[in-house]
């Protein structure tokens, strides 16, 4: 949370996350080059430059694979949530590693030419009309352009400026980038690789991305829409909400609300955090404030306002009891509207 933009918001956890990332990338590239060097030579088909470009290319592919796994893993198991915390730095580093791969490619295969390397890359292929021998570099370029867009719009300013839903729609391009990266790998490296190790690691990683997304999608589709009673929606027994936690209610379409218990007081707010639309209902109440599980943004339960000096606000909802059944209003109040909490005793242990 910040009241004035700064270039990069680092804290201890982010330093640690970034340090681990950098060490993993450096170790991978050094090991790859070390193992590959004995097979390389200026008189052989693979030389040192190709080993280095493959080291960075495969590293970027594996990093993208891990990034794509983090989202569904966090949805399937909360223990993976810490990996989500600094995923944007992960993405920016992936772009830089992929860019290094491209620089090696252009400075090797397109060096000493009269035409620009990029023009050469786009025009020298003679087999674009068929699958066999299709210029797989085009897929790599598409993935790189998308990774550039995502990296350049990763600052919090873009979230506030575009609004989180528009920003998230833009960042759905990560799926297109990964499909392009898989095609780049499959029509390029996979076509002439003789060592099965990386084929299995990269191919297995891509299949894992596929399986995890299907599993997370199936889990999400199990969430049904609650029964509507005119302008109110039936939630059920309010005593099942644990203290300091919430239940998530599907209102309509993409709209969800989180009903939090703080002692014997119930409050309902939008489930979407104002920062990155993180699922507030999967967070908990810390120091009297609803705390987003993704990046720790906080809001007061009664009015959905972030504590001063922060200015973020989220919509609130009316709650009422009908007998023992809890109901929530189908229409949200504007962000930051105060709503008196509903008093409901906790269930006896």
């Amino acid at each position: 949370m910040s009241v004035k933009y700064i270039p990069v918001q680092w804290n201890f956890n982010k330093y640690f996350y970034d340090l681990v990332l950098l060490i993993c990338v450096a170790v991978y590239i050094l090991v790859f080059i070390r193992i590959g060097t004995p097979e390389a030579g200026v008189t052989r088909p693979i030389d040192g430059a190709i080993i280095r470009m493959r080291a960075f290319g495969t590293c970027a592919f594996l990093m993208l694979t891990v990034i794509l796994c983090i989202g569904p893993l966090a949805r399937l198991d909360r223990r993976f949530l810490p990996l989500l915390y600094n995923r944007r730095h992960f993405g920016v580093l992936t772009f830089l590693v992929a860019l290094t791969h491209v620089v090696y490619v252009l400075n090797w295969y397109y060096a000493f030419s009269d035409i620009s390397p990029v023009v050469g890359l786009l025009t020298t292929s003679e087999t674009s009309g068929q699958l066999l021998g299709f210029p797989f570099e085009w897929f790599g370029m598409l993935a790189l352009v998308i990774l550039a867009i995502l990296a350049f719009t990763s600052h919090d300013f873009w979230l506030a400026f575009l609004s989180a839903p528009v920003w998230k729609r833009l960042h759905l391009l990560i799926y297109v980038a990964y499909a392009a990266a898989v095609a780049h790998f499959a029509l390029g490296y996979l076509q002439d690789a003789t060592n099965p190790f990386f084929m299995i690691v990269a191919g297995g990683g891509a299949v894992m991305v596929s399986v995890l997304h299907l599993a997370a999608g199936l889990k999400a589709s199990a969430d049904g829409e609650q029964a509507h009673k005119g302008e109110w929606i039936e939630v059920g027994d309010p005593t099942v909400i644990p203290d300091g936690r919430a239940i998530i209610v599907r209102i309509k379409g993409n709209e969800r609300a989180a009903i939090f218990r703080n002692g014997d007081a119930l409050s309902a707010v939008s489930n979407a955090c104002a920062h990155q639309n993180g699922p507030l209902g999967e967070g908990r109440i810390i120091d009297g404030c609803i705390t987003c599980p993704w990046h720790g943004f906080q809001y007061r339960p009664e009015d959905g306002c972030a504590p001063a000096p922060f200015t973020e606000k989220i919509p609130t909802y009316d709650l009422r009891l009908e007998g023992d059944t809890l109901l929530i209003a189908a229409k949200a109040h504007p962000p930051g509207t105060k709503v008196d909490p509903l008093t409901v005793p906790e269930r006896d242990a």
Binding site: S163, A164, P165, K168, R169, L172, A220, G253, N254, E255, S270, A272, A274, N277, K313, I314, P315, A332, P334, P335
Partner: peptide, 9 residues
């Protein structure tokens, strides 16, 4: 403002 809280699920 309300649209900012409807993620493209």
């Amino acid at each position: 403002a309300q649209r900012r809280h409807k993620p493209p699920r």
